[in-house]
Write a protein that binds this DNA or RNA. Structure first.
Length: 498
RNA sequence: GGCCCGGUGGUCAAGCGGCUAAGACACCGCCCUUUCACGGCGGUAACACGGGUUCGAUUCCCGUCCGGGUCACCA
């Protein structure tokens, strides 16, 4: 056995430093739940001034996805979850890709066999969950094989796996930072496979080995791993390693409209992933902020606060505030966060973000993106709301004359006809086609006609836009459309009313 | 089903033995107003249930119910 593996790693890591890791498997997208786990993991490290590492768990050869690692990098970067060590950066305890650490796991598994905490198993492979459970764990005929005989069969080339030998008696208690102490009867635990037939480790084994070798102090992961935690403890103890602090995070649920119940959020059921949300026009900052609050809440003074930047989160995040019960993902609230972030943007930043969405329907270069964006900023909750809202600029919709009737504005077809007839010459004669003059001209006209502002504004806006609801009022829309186009549309309205 | 973990308004949640039980989203009104928004103001709405412990339980313990997780050579 190569002794350096046992003594070398620890020496490379400063004592007392908090080290956490996000260890995704490359699936090609980021679950919302995974994003939150990554975020909390990052926050714990940053809060403590420690190190955050990225490790790729690609031990499932059957599920390799091309380019998936790049998706992970891109997502992490976009979210601001910077890492200090990782496959691309390297670091003192690499490699950071599990398949590149392959020889390591076998050595450690064999060490466990030597110690009697694991054993070779030659039983038939159960290909799936359904095929498993052919025999009860206590019935595994290989568990009590003579070590020398087992070794001989291995050397003879017989396929095998290495299983963890879990005591049949007693119980195991482990400690979790959010759930507290949890005790499980050992008889409830199965002799899980550590090393697969292909020589690669299972997730559970690779985690223990890597987390130890990489000096991870806080193991953060989803609550679905809570039930395997006692087996981890048994493994750490068998190795004689220090047990890290476990931080299990409850699942993120989502309401299922079909069944009227909640279930764990998952890509498989068509629930949105991080990428989906971004594609739907949600801002990265809003998603991160919202997700941070799904399962964690600031305490004390900050209990009422909801808006946090990443840096602020790093400052105030504490494991104490992590909740034990599963939280339901609420798209409406995410939308609220997104709307707030959109409104808080500098106008020019918003215009830049909105431009591609505006240009989906506003192709005419005569219409200024910044002008339109200014109308939109307070009126959209997500960027994908935009195209539909501004579709009337390029082409006047084929609207119904009924739109001219509006009770609140006191308009009907007849009134509207008079308003348009009066507005057209006034607008034609305007010296300067800009916000102030158009506004003042219309207000003055309303006064001279003896009608309330809305009575004049409504028909003008309807004729100009051809829609009942528009971003911005009559003045803004006319200004952007330009004098010529505005007059053309108002005359069309007049015709429609004749 | 066994085991494990949860349970404060529809949702996220504060609370950590004594409170008229915060706040936010959503919803409903009102104000503002050139449509719709934004913004402002106000409102409806909760401690799952039953036993204990205690002078006193949302808070501690037990049971019930409900919800979730897990029982793969997947992670």
């Amino acid at each position: 056995m190569d002794k350096q593996w046992f003594d070398g790693m620890e020496a490379r890591i400063p004592r007392g430093e908090v080290r956490t890791r996000f260890a995704p498997s490359p699936t090609g997208y980021m679950h919302v739940g995974n994003l939150r786990t990554a975020l909390y993991t990052w926050l714990i490290a940053r809060h403590a001034g420690g190190k955050f590492l990225l490790r790729i768990e690609d031990t499932d050869q059957g599920r390799l996805v091309e380019g998936a690692v790049d998706v992970i990098y891109a997502t992490m970067r976009r979210c601001g979850l910077t890492w200090d060590e990782g496959p691309d950066l390297g670091g003192p305890v690499g490699p950071y890709i599990q398949t590149e650490r392959r020889p390591l796991y076998k050595k450690y598994a064999e060490l466990l066999v030597e110690k009697g905490a694991a054993y070779y198993c030659f039983c038939e492979k159960a290909e799936s969950k359904e095929d498993s459970g052919q025999f009860e764990r206590s019935d595994d005929p290989c568990r009590d094989l003579d070590p020398a005989e087992a070794k001989a069969r291995v050397e003879a080339g017989e396929p095998y796996v290495i299983r963890q030998r879990i005591p049949h008696e007693g119980s195991t208690t482990f400690r979790d930072a959010v759930y507290g102490d949890i005790t499980v009867e050992n008889s409830e635990l199965d002799d899980q496979i550590l090393l697969k037939r292909d020589g690669l480790p299972t997730y559970n084994f690779a985690n223990v080995v890597d987390d130890h070798l990489m000096g991870i102090t806080h193991v953060v992961r989803g609550a679905e791993y809570l039930s395997s935690a006692p087996k981890y403890d048994l493994l750490y103890r068998a190795f004689g390693w220090e047990i890290p602090i476990y931080v299990h995070c409850s699942s993120i649920m989502i309401a299922d409209p079909e069944t009227g119940t909640v279930r764990k959020m998952s890509k498989r059921h068509g629930d949105p992933s991080y990428e989906d949300l971004i594609a739907q026009g949600y801002l990265n900052e809003a998603v991160v902020n919202y997700v941070a609050l799904l399962g964690w809440a600031p305490r004390g003074e900050l209990a009422e606060r909801e808006f946090f930047t990443l840096d602020e989160l790093a400052r105030v995040f504490d494991i104490e505030g992590v909740s034990k019960s599963p939280a339901a993902f609420d798209m409406a609230k995410l939308t609220y966060f997104n709307a707030s972030y959109l409104r808080a943007m500098a106008p020019e930043d918003f215009a830049q973000a909105a431009e591609p969405w505006i240009r989906q329907t506003v192709k005419n270069p005569a219409y200024d993106v910044a002008d339109i964006a200014a109308l939109l900023q307070a009126r959209c909750e997500k960027l994908s709301d935009i195209p539909e809202k501004v579709d009337f600029f390029d082409a006047l919709p084929d609207y119904d004359a009924g739109l001219f009737t509006n009770k609140k504005s006191k308009t009907d077809p007849e009134v509207s006809w008079r308003m348009l007839e009066a507005a057209i010459p006034m607008l034609e004669g305007l010296a300067d086609w800009s916000q102030g003059p158009i506004h003042d001209g219309l207000i003055a006209l309303a006064e001279s006609l003896g009608v309330k502002n809305a009575t004049l504004m409504w028909p003008v806006r309807i004729a100009a836009a051809g829609k009942a609801v528009t971003p911005g009022g009559a003045v803004e829309i006319c200004r952007i459309l330009g004098r010529e186009e505005t007059l053309r549309r108002l005359r069309l309205g007049l015709e429609k009313l004749s």
